[in-house]
């Protein structure tokens, strides 16, 4: 068998294997202890949904968006306001939340991350660029987006006060557990599947990965790499907004609601490594239960500490994150066969 086919067979075999294993343990779990199963699956989905937007932006652009939590805040507020004040049905309001955040992200990319707008102005006034793009400048991008997160939190406080009216939780409950949270587990799986298809099975995805691997060559082959980054940032932001929209009925609407998401997302990306789908889903499966267990036993704060501790362990023992481990295991198996 050729290497390429082997690789594909590996992905299909183990990818499907992993999905089957997860579904099977869910089925068993539901029969044995439905409430615990729901709690753990929800915790996993929380990590996945919190992280996916951040992971895309980090994995593809090398930018850590510390305003990620505030992008989620924006999605949650836009959803809540268009449902409560605008009277939109919830699914539509969630679409608005995701879209508003995607457009906001697009603006941030043009004005801050790529420096397009300031440089456009700079070239026409002082005759030179004013800032260097933040692509692949981890520390600088963290400083810039941290500033943005402070502005957004304070901005929300000034405009909307310390809290806004909340949307009620839709649906009933099963085995003492809210159906809405169970539905979120399915949504998380769906989001991962969509992201996987977008980045591996479409022409756009191929262009994005080419840009990631060798920007100069991609450009020389006619790819507008600026636009690739711009769209990628908008997609990552839109997903953050969608996460905010999904959790809007479950959270109290305060300007600081993004904090809990940022911690989990940041840890998940550190633990997951560069691969968006594999990394995010595996670190969700690892961190979700850790968070659920510690939070259950010792409260939310302990859960947060446990996560950070897990991240430190991961940094120490898994350079390259889970993605790196998966790659090494795959190489080992391929050599063996």
């Amino acid at each position: 068998m050729s290497n390429g086919l082997k690789q594909q067979a590996f992905q299909v075999r183990y990818g499907l294997g992993a999905v089957v294993a997860v579904v099977a343990s869910l089925a068993v779990g539901v029969l044995v202890d439905p409430n615990l199963t729901f709690r753990v699956s929800y915790a996993v989905s929380f990590v996945v949904l919190a992280a996916v937007g951040l992971a895309i932006i980090f994995g593809i652009m090398g930018v850590i968006n510390l305003a990620h939590g505030e992008f989620i805040l924006l999605g949650a507020y836009a959803t809540t306001l268009s449902a409560v004040k605008g009277g939109l049905p919830l699914p539509l309001a969630m679409g608005v939340g995701a879209l508003v955040t995607a457009l906001f992200g697009l603006t941030v990319e043009r004005v801050v991350i790529s420096g397009f707008v300031p440089n456009w102005i700079g070239r026409r006034t002082v005759g030179r660029d004013l800032i260097t793009p933040f692509y692949d400048r981890l520390a600088d991008s963290m400083v810039a987006t941290f500033g943005l997160s402070l502005i957004m939190t304070q901005g929300a406080r000034i405009v909307f006060g310390n809290s806004i009216e909340q949307i009620g939780v839709p649906f009933g409950s099963t085995a003492g557990y809210p159906d809405y949270r169970i539905a979120l587990v399915g949504v998380a799986a769906g989001v991962l599947a969509l992201v996987y298809v977008l980045f591996t099975q479409t022409t756009f995805g191929t262009r994005v990965r080419a840009t990631m691997q060798d920007e100069e060559t991609a450009k020389a082959l006619g790819v507008d790499t600026e636009r690739v980054y711009m769209v990628t940032f908008a997609i990552g932001s839109g997903l953050a907004g969608f996460t905010g929209a999904l959790f809007a009925p479950l959270l109290s609407m305060q300007p600081t609601l993004g904090d809990q998401f940022l911690v989990e997302a940041f840890v998940a990306v550190v633990v997951g490594g560069a691969s968006v789908v594999v990394g995010t889903s595996l670190s969700g499966l690892l961190l979700g239960p850790v968070d659920a267990l510690f939070s259950d036993q010792f409260g939310e704060f302990a859960g947060r500490i446990a996560l950070l501790f897990a991240a430190m362990l991961a940094l120490r023992f898994l350079p390259g994150g889970i993605t790196g481990v998966v790659d090494r295991v795959r190489d080992r198996i391929e050599e063996g066969s």
Binding site: T203, T206, R209, A210, T217, A218, L221
Partner: peptide, 15 residues
């Protein structure tokens, strides 16, 4: 400077 992580076919598609 081919794209090492894209398949041969995807590399060609990029052209």
């Amino acid at each position: 400077d081919i794209f090492p992580g894209l398949t041969v076919e995807q590399n060609l598609q990029m052209g």
